[in-house]
Amino acid sequence: MTETQSWRPKVIIFDLLTALLDSWTLWDASTPSGTATQGRPWRARYLEVTFGQGTYVPYEQLVHQAANDVGLPDSAPTKLLENWINLQPWPEVPRVLKQLRLQGYMLGVVTNCSIYLGRLACSRAGQFDAVVTAGESGFYKPAREAYQAILTAMDVEAEDVLFVAGSAGDVEGATNVGMKVVWHNRVGLAKKGDAVPLKEGRITLRSISAVLVSIGTDLGRLSSNEQELITSITSGGALVVAVTTGFTCDKFGRKLGIYFACVLFLIGTIIQAAAFSLAQMSVGRLLVGLVVGIAAMVFRLHIAELAPARYRGWMIVAENLCVAGGQFIEYAIGAGLTDAPNGWR
Rank of each mutant, 00 (worst) to 15 (best):
E3S: 13
Q5M: 06
R8S: 15
K10C: 00
K10F: 00
I12T: 04
F14S: 01
L17E: 02
W27K: 02
D28P: 01
S30C: 10
P32D: 12
S33H: 02
A36W: 12
P41F: 02
Y46W: 12
F51Q: 15
G52C: 12
G54Q: 10
Y56M: 10
V57E: 14
P58H: 13
P58N: 12
Q61R: 14
Q61A: 15
Q65R: 15
L72E: 01
A76V: 06
L81F: 05
W84S: 14
V93Q: 03
L97P: 05
L100C: 09
L107I: 01
N112G: 13
R119E: 12
L120Q: 15
A121F: 03
C122A: 15
C122L: 06
C122Y: 00
S123T: 05
S123C: 02
R124Y: 08
Q127W: 01
D129Y: 04
T133E: 09
S137T: 02
K141D: 05
E145L: 04
A146H: 06
Q148Y: 05
Q148W: 05
A149D: 06
A149M: 04
I150E: 10
A153S: 15
D155L: 01
V156H: 07
E159A: 13
F163M: 07
F163V: 10
V164C: 07
A165D: 07
S167W: 01
G169R: 01
D170L: 00
G173W: 03
G173E: 02
V181G: 06
H184F: 09
N185C: 04
G188N: 07
K191L: 03
K192Y: 03
A195S: 14
V196Q: 15
P197D: 08
L212H: 08
V213A: 13
L219C: 09
G220D: 04
G220Q: 12
L222A: 08
S223A: 07
N225I: 06
L229F: 00
I230W: 00
I233C: 13
T234V: 06
S235C: 01
L239C: 10
V241E: 08
T245K: 02
D250C: 08
K251W: 12
F252Q: 09
G253T: 04
K255D: 07
G257T: 07
V263T: 15
L266N: 00
L266F: 14
I267K: 07
T269L: 13
Q272A: 11
A273P: 00
A274M: 14
F276V: 12
L278I: 09
L287N: 05
V288C: 14
G293T: 06
M297F: 13
M297I: 15
R300P: 00
L301H: 04
I303E: 08
A304W: 00
A304D: 07
P308Y: 03
G313T: 15
W314I: 11
M315Y: 00
N320G: 15
L321N: 11
V323S: 11
A324H: 09
G326A: 07
G334K: 10
G336N: 12
P341F: 05
R345Y: 02
